[in-house]
Design a protein around this nucleic acid. Structure first.
Lengths: 128, 128
DNA sequence: CCGCATCCTCCCCGATACTG
DNA sequence: CAGTATCGGGGAGGATGCGG
């Protein structure tokens, strides 16, 4: 493939911005959870385990702002708020799956590279 | 497509880790530059413009540790250090291109969603 | 030329407490 | 149940200076 089809620097920054969003601590997990179907706030919280309310709220807000998630409020008491992926949000699974496949197929190779690198580091320490 | 083929949570974290790496401030730009061919440290520095030495060094070290980039030192005076993508590093362009395409094709949609969201925010401010 | 060490700043994120 | 407000630690990242 052409190695430089990531286009101009401006577009590259845009892509980087998206990668930062998806690559932050919780977004991918939230998107994955919502990929299995709409969820209420607390359901997401339980499903993700260790996330704080603040970060779940922030993550969902960001996703909502980018049009990847839609937020539906039912003003009852107690209130019900449901989150669901938009079509655009579901489209994200395609590219993510590509990255996921790459990661999985190269995981061993990466681990080996890290072990080799860290081993070299350690031997440098010993030499000193 | 199946929306939940991002596998188990452990694998998901692994993918997230990779996304964080690629999604950090400089990695994608560095990889893209190296995709056009091997580069020396200073050449990368000039090409990327505003990156500090510290961050360029750190970024390259991380890539090297993960086996995506190889570092070749020629011990002359002054020393020459050349960086190049490994095969695994070049393989990354496939998945990245998928994400890049998604980002480009959805850029307008994201901008519209953000404008709508921010517009709503502003009107809430006025209402208060 | 390459890269490490130091200092400083800002923001991410968690913990906690409080509203409707 | 859903969300906001506040505080605090820690890491990312820039600027500068030194060393090989």
């Amino acid at each position: 493939m052409k190695p430089c089809d990531t286009h101009d620097t401006g577009t590259c920054q845009r892509i980087s911005e998206m990668l930062s969003r998806i690559g932050d601590k919780w977004t991918l997990l939230v998107v994955r959870a919502l990929g299995r179907g709409p969820r209420r706030f607390s359901a997401l919280r339980r499903e993700l385990g260790s996330i704080s309310q603040k970060m779940l709220t922030r993550t969902l807000r960001n996703l909502e702002r980018d049009g990847l998630v839609i937020r539906t409020v039912t003003p009852t008491t107690p209130p019900q708020v449901e989150y669901a992926l938009t079509t655009m949000g579901e489209d994200l699974f395609g590219p993510i799956a590509a990255l996921a496949d790459w990661t999985i197929t190269h995981a061993d190779c990466i681990d080996a590279a890290r072990a080799a690198y860290d081993g070299r580091e350690a031997s440098i320490q010993r030499a000193a």
